[in-house]
Write a protein that binds this DNA or RNA. Structure first.
Lengths: 212, 212
DNA sequence: ATTCAACTTACCCATTGGTAAATTACCTTA
DNA sequence: TAAGGTAATTTACCAATGGGTAAGTTGAAT
């Protein structure tokens, strides 16, 4: 069944491998240009294959998008979840742990982040709904974190918490974008850089208050 | 010349007014869905007009985009520039002043921010180049600010400065996005909220350092 | 009635998502 | 080793969408 003892009909690249190639290429294209601006032919061309093969393997363009979305969504969700769970004493603070987990999860597929946050998805489509599901799930995790942080700071306005959630997401997005533009940087180097930046922000907020 | 003493041919809405309507609608559509996912017909429909009118008034789709880009680019550039210039003693710190200026400049055209940061622009096009010009100009202003901040904090790595620039831009983007989802909030309310959030971030970074 | 800006109808054509039918190349088996 | 089977893949096509244009139509002011 899963092991078709026969090896007849083995032209070209095995389907499983080809599917992986296609998914990788599609994820990068979708992430880089957005759903609408991405053409199926371009993805096919990247893999060195023609359009109908993608359709046979994955169905329509939207199905292909979903096939890209699900793995990265689950991966990110899981990474963030476990990163937030392990609050050891004298471990790095939660935001840094989350960032570090993010970089590790996105290593080799950095553009995938933007598959989740694609504004060109046809509104009302299945794809848009599923992407929203993952975004919300991640946001819920972030919400827990930011709420806790704001509580520590004594702020209670729920809108403030919501805005902080957005701000945090935007920060992550920006750092991933910077990372994409600096391909040589390892996930660990990114984590260290973020630690430095947070440290800098800390001292800045403490000292400068008049002119900055 | 500019005042055609004759008033013959005055059917419908005067051209100048119509052009304003179209630009407003186009800016919102481009900002909301991105260049590629926006159709000229959709913009026309929003104004209650048909496609050829847009072409007659503005030329092609890309020209229309440029007609949206230029005003908002200049406006933002100017707003940020003047906000960074006025460093009075006991004025709000620079980041807050910039944010405040941003919200004021974007009032009534919040989606315009995303016209500048549209990843779906056809790479290599005039539109992409012009958008990049504005982005770079704004980034240069931001670079001056972040470099100064990092210098204060004692960090010297130029890559760190670049990353911080990205982070700051991402923060602004996220806050604008939140603002779009909360239409009732005034620019001033947003500025106050940002002040609160920065304050909260300050106390958080000062106190929590083990578990957070 | 004429004029002229404002505006539309009706069309063209390139791109692109999608499909049906063939074809290639490897493997097995007689 | 020739025949058959099957997975992998392509060629050739269709239909819809969307940017763009040419030519006409409307209607207020003169």
């Amino acid at each position: 069944m899963t092991t078709p003892s026969s090896k007849a009909g083995t032209k070209g690249v095995p389907r499983a491998d080809r599917e992986r190639q296609i998914l990788a290429a599609a994820t990068e294209e979708f992430g880089r240009h957005g759903y609408e601006a991405t053409t199926v032919a371009a993805i096919a061309g990247r893999v060195g294959v023609t359009k109908p093969l993608l359709h046979q393997y994955f169905g329509g363009k939207q199905d292909l998008y979903l096939a890209c979305l699900d793995p990265i969504g689950d991966r990110l969700l899981d990474a963030i979840h476990t990163a937030m769970a392990e609050h050891d004493t004298d471990a790095p603070p939660t935001p840094l742990r989350v960032l570090s987990a993010l970089f590790t999860a996105l290593d080799g597929r950095r553009e995938a982040w933007f598959v989740l946050y694609d504004p060109t998805l046809p509104s009302g489509s299945d794809a848009a709904r599923r992407a929203a599901y993952y975004r919300d799930a991640i946001d819920d995790l972030a919400a827990a974190g930011t709420a806790e942080l704001l509580h520590t700071a004594g702020t209670t306005d729920p809108l403030d918490a919501d805005a902080l959630k957005y701000a945090w997401r935007g920060l992550c997005t920006a750092l991933v974008r910077w990372w994409i533009n600096h391909p040589d940087q390892s996930p660990e180097a990114m984590a260290r850089r973020c630690a430095r930046l947070i440290e800098a922000a800390h001292t800045i907020l403490s000292t400068g208050d008049g002119t900055m």
